[in-house]
């Protein structure tokens, strides 16, 4: 469904991605892992249309998106839960969700989407009329995921959704992500929380210093003892 071909992104003259190629098939949950500063956020933001690529192609359903303005990405079926959530903190939770369903197609399903999100995250229902900035970190993350789901995406991009959250909330979050994926939405998940992410992923890429250095099914990819030690903190034999 989504295909990146030799994508190169720069900040000023400093390249952050050196030519990344990857594919996200329909309905799959794909995970990108890698150390801090590897370029994961840059990559996911480029797919959401937040960064212009220097060269290479972003192709969604066979359509070249690379030169489109960022407001055209959402109606192609892509929605992002950005790093640090970036809610509209001065607006209410309901308004945040409504902005999520801004595109014409999503607007038609607004009530149904809202209902779905309140079922997925019951805590959100009680907070609909609160100012988004007043919510706890975990609740804000749920609203950020909800806002993206309001867009009715076929590809959901998640940038470190578990960052800074308590283990209990992280479990709920991963449960919800799995549920969304099971309902047919493809997911691209960037995570520091590698063990959890790989458990639910169909396919994984390892990104280091702006390059994909390994890829494969999670259990195959992380059979390599060195990678296990580096990313899962697991010492072989234990």
């Amino acid at each position: 469904m989504l295909e990146l071909r030799d994508l190169r992104v720069e900040y000023g003259a400093a390249p952050a991605l050196w030519g990344v190629s990857l594919a996200i098939p329909e309905r799959k949950l794909v995970c990108i892992v890698g150390p801090n500063g590897a370029g994961k956020t840059t990559l996911i933001n480029a797919i959401a249309g937040l960064h212009r690529a220097k060269s290479g192609r972003i192709v969604m359903d066979g359509t070249d998106m690379t030169s489109l303005p960022s407001h055209r990405y959402c109606s192609a079926g892509i929605a992002i839960v950005p790093e640090g959530r970036r809610l509209f903190t001065r607006m209410s939770v309901r308004e945040n969700l409504e902005v999520g369903s801004y595109t014409r197609a999503a607007r038609k399903d607004r009530d149904r989407s809202l209902d779905y999100i309140c079922t997925l995250f019951p805590a959100v229902r009680d907070k609909l009329d609160s100012v988004a900035g007043s919510l706890s970190g975990g609740q804000q993350q749920m609203v950020a995921i909800g806002r993206a789901l309001m867009a009715r995406p076929r590809l959901l991009l998640l940038d470190e959704p578990s960052l800074g959250l308590s283990p209990l909330i992280v479990q709920a979050m991963f449960g919800a992500i799995r549920e969304v994926n099971a309902a047919g939405t493809a997911v691209l998940l960037v995570e520091q929380n590698v063990a959890n992410a790989l458990e639910i992923a169909d396919f994984a890429y390892l990104l280091e210093e702006g390059r994909i250095v390994a890829e494969g099914a999670p259990n195959v990819l992380f059979n390599n003892p060195e990678l296990r030690r580096a990313y899962l903190g697991i010492v072989p034999g234990h």
Partner: peptide, 19 residues
């Protein structure tokens, strides 16, 4: 709502389809 969202975080508002 779109105008208020743009005022607070224009890139994210754009990512949700707001021109």
């Amino acid at each position: 709502r779109a105008l208020r969202a743009l005022a607070e975080d224009a890139p994210i508002a754009a990512a949700f389809g707001i021109n």
